[in-house]
């Protein structure tokens, strides 16, 4: 799985592409945590190219959300496809990670 990271103003945008399963979870968690460390205002995970998230993948989101909370920056996700959105809803992650339709909405919030 490829992860593209870029800076937009005071935000770090992280774009995981493909499947975020057990095999990819550790590396993704590290990328998320590094993004949180670098972020001035927050991290937005752009899920437009994310086709699948497993429980292990979700834990990468949870760890990063906790790290962002500790640092005092935001951590949100945007552009979720229907399968990934279902996983976020059933696992309750939409209660702790704000979900937006687009990057611009996420950075403006």
């Amino acid at each position: 799985m490829e992860i593209i990271t870029r800076t937009e103003g005071r935000f770090i945008i992280v774009e995981p592409c493909g499947r975020l399963g057990f095999d990819e979870a550790s590396a993704t968690q590290l990328d998320f945590e590094q993004a949180v460390e670098r972020a001035e205002a927050g991290v937005v995970v752009d899920c437009a190219s994310l086709s699948y998230v497993s429980p292990a993948g979700l834990r990468a989101f949870l760890v990063a959300a906790k790290a962002a909370e500790t640092k005092g920056v935001s951590f949100s996700a945007c552009s979720l496809g229907s399968d990934v959105a279902s996983v976020f809803t059933i696992s309750g992650f939409d209660r702790i990670v704000p979900i937006f339709d687009s990057i611009s909405e996420a950075t403006a919030a």
């Binding site: 497993s54 429980p55 834990r59 996983v87 696992s91 309750g92 209660r95 702790i96």
Partner: peptide
């Protein structure tokens, strides 16, 4: 309780 319960896909499916 509602906010913090079952932040896990498997547990969410069990709850469902």
């Amino acid at each position: 309780i509602e906010q913090v319960s079952n932040l896990d896909l498997t547990a969410g499916l069990v709850e469902k």
